[in-house]
Design a protein around this nucleic acid. Structure first.
Lengths: 148, 148
DNA sequence: TCCTTTGTCAACTAAACCAATCGGGATAAT
DNA sequence: ATTATCCCGATTGGTTTAGTTGACAAAGGA
């Protein structure tokens, strides 16, 4: 299960990816476009900034920008940063503090590994660019609003 | 992430599967063999009983038995019973109360579906019998202890 | 009959986690 | 200076997890 927070993080990055090259986007805009509680989004974007995913501009006309090009940014990276290692159970995520009481000779291990592999494969092969393209394909090309 | 409780449930059913046909197994035995806190296992087995996975015998020489043959019992069934529907996010588990604020036209949906499919496929194609066989293959054939 | 062994059940709890919110501060553009 | 925007730490309320407790019921043997 990926947490609500992580889904928000992905949606926010996707929104920034859609607008990459167009200057900073405000928290409030991202929040509205993606239906994310604004103050919570603030926390999330700040975390993503520390993780090197986005950068920020302060003051009037400030906002957030994607640091890296969407083509090279995978969903897997984002999930791992927000949630920690991907996997159905602790003993299979490489986390050394997690240990089966059965010391690695548990019959379930193979199955957990299969799941971890399958899930990682999907997340690691989906880039933000893929999502933006899918979005455009559906006719939701981003049209900036110049006037109010 | 499958919970500790669910892992215990699977290990307990596996232990019963290993001994199926040999009469009831006591909670304490299962607990020791699988390193599960005994009083917690009590709760879990009782729940599995209500779900029709096991049955019980009370009194001296009582214990628990698997109801169905291990060949037809999949890990997927057990996980769904203990944890609810399988899937990385709520909007993809068929749960009708879960809804994206974007009304099903979210670009992430396809990816979540892929993950749900891949995970379910692994869990639904693994039976308890598969696990018992894997266990025997590793030379851990169950040898009942007749004397004490 | 009575005692021991086993499962049954409902309630309880401590800790962790999640999703958010709040209040105030810093910085940049106009 | 004023306003718009991000920055940061603390706090909250609710839910979930991983168990524990204690009293009870049934089966079987002495």
């Amino acid at each position: 299960m990926v947490s609500q927070k992580c889904q928000y993080a992905l949606r926010a990055l996707f929104e920034l990816a859609k607008r990459s090259g167009l200057g900073p986007t405000k928290i409030a805009e991202v929040a509205e476009a993606q239906a994310i509680p604004p103050r919570f989004l603030e926390v999330i974007l700040s975390q993503l900034k520390h993780g090197g995913f986005v950068e920020s501009r302060r003051g009037a006309e400030g906002g957030y920008l994607l640091v890296r090009p969407p083509r090279g940014l995978t969903v897997g990276e984002v999930i791992r940063f927000v949630e920690g290692p991907i996997g159905p159970v602790g003993c299979v995520t490489g986390d050394p503090k997690e240990h089966c009481p059965l010391h690695g000779d548990c019959v379930f291990l193979g199955m957990w590994e299969k799941v971890r592999g399958a899930v990682s494969e999907v997340y690691d092969s989906t880039t933000l660019q893929d999502l933006v393209e899918e979005d455009r394909r559906r006719g939701r090309r981003y049209v900036p609003t110049y006037a109010i």
